[in-house]
Computed example of a mutant assay.
Amino acid sequence: MAGKRRGFAERRKACGYTQESFAEAMRVDRTTVYRWERGEADPQPHQRPKIAKLLKITVSDLDGLLAPDSPVLAASHPWLVPHVLADDDEQDAWELARRVEASDVGAPTLRRLEGAFEDLATAYPVTPPQDLLRRVRRHSAYVAVLLGGRKTLSEHRRLLVVGGWLSLLAATLHIDLKQEHSATARLQTAVALAREAEHAEIEAWCYETEAWRVLTDGDYARAAELSRIAQSVAPAGTSALIQATAQEGRAHARLGNGKETYSAIERVRQMSDALGFQERPIEHHYQYDPAKSLAYTATTLAWLGDSAAEGFAREVISRLNPSGDVTAWPRRVASANIDLALVLLTGDRLDEACDAARKAMMSGRVVPSNHWRALEVVKAVEAKKLPEAPDLREAYEGLL
């Protein structure tokens, strides 16, 4: 970039800063401030809010100061000191202003990316994770390319947000596939992007997702702790807050903490009821709905050994109205059938339990991160020495 930014320098002086003292306040070298004012470099996005605060202006006004000097900019910002451009500089100045305002991103591209994420999050319950991961990778790579191009501050933040959501979804898919190192890297990226964009809900979802991962590994106390951290980060009224509360309840159920489990179930019920009932909810992984509350309650009560889990599991299955083709089920129905099998085994309704478990495993919706749940049913059937045990074991091994 070329073209002096006289207005930036004048504003700095008007606020009582020398180049050296301004550099000290910004914790940069004086030559960095010099290059900003000469138009030879741009402040980084994370530096701009602090610069605006020091200059006692808005970030939007700062954008004007960082544009090359022109009569139009001076008129738009009366605190700029007017000056006359030499005739041979005028065309260059206007071209530089045009380039500053130009963007390699644009609103249509951002809308397409944001819409693509919504589609991916909705496809999550019914798409094999390895297939969905390929699509998520393509969109994430495109976001990375755009982050390296020209863009406005608003576009930059929107890219950070959609990049954060995509990284979070990729981490979830890696967890489903038991790809631990990739999941960790994706979660770390999602957290970094969320913090850079100051998007607390994405950060909360990252903690909740990690809570689910350690729960599947059997570290129930850590899962409860991470769920509470997620709740402390999540903004009020968000799906992340409800989901993190539900995750805490599931962790307490595995620990056998009845009081804490029922307390979490009640808090989830109250928050999900406030969302209103949806006859056919959209299966969006990051949008909670009352039907999800039913599903999580079924799982939580089944793990606690409460027979009330049966009613919740059957209601989930009934509401989502799966067809006779089990491969068309959403993932939530497969999980509800595993919950149903667990509670039916406890009540010695063995034939029904085996049938529910078999259907869940034949659906193709039990992802690797949930294999352990199916295995619990298989082991319980084997422990009872039921004649269905060999067939159920064979169905389970077909998942592997």
Rank of each mutant, 00 (worst) to 15 (best):
L153I: 13
L110C: 04
A170M: 04
R158Q: 15
R112H: 12
L187R: 14
D92I: 01
L187Y: 08
P129D: 04
W94G: 04
H156L: 02
L110M: 05
R134C: 05
L193W: 03
D104S: 05
A170G: 14
V126E: 07
T189M: 02
R138K: 15
T122K: 09
D92K: 06
H174S: 09
S167E: 03
W165S: 06
A194D: 00
T127E: 10
D131C: 09
L187V: 00
L169Q: 11
S140F: 13
H156A: 06
V162Q: 02
G149R: 06
R150L: 05
P108T: 01
E155W: 12
R195E: 10
A192D: 06
I175Y: 09
V191M: 11
E180G: 06
A183K: 01
H181N: 08
G163T: 14
T109V: 11
E180P: 02
E155G: 06
T127A: 08
L160W: 10
E118V: 15
R186I: 08
H181C: 09
K178Y: 03
A123V: 09
E196N: 06
R137Q: 14
L173N: 04
R195L: 01
T127G: 13
R134S: 14
E180A: 10
S182R: 07
A190H: 01
R158K: 12
Q179H: 11
L146N: 06
Q179K: 10
R134V: 08
S167G: 11
A123F: 14
G164W: 01
R112N: 13
R111H: 11
W165Q: 14
T184C: 12
G163C: 04
L187S: 08
H156N: 13
S140H: 10
V161R: 10
T172M: 07
V143N: 00
T127V: 02
E118T: 15
L193Q: 00
A123P: 01
S182W: 09
E118Y: 13
D92W: 11
K151T: 12
A183T: 04
I175K: 02
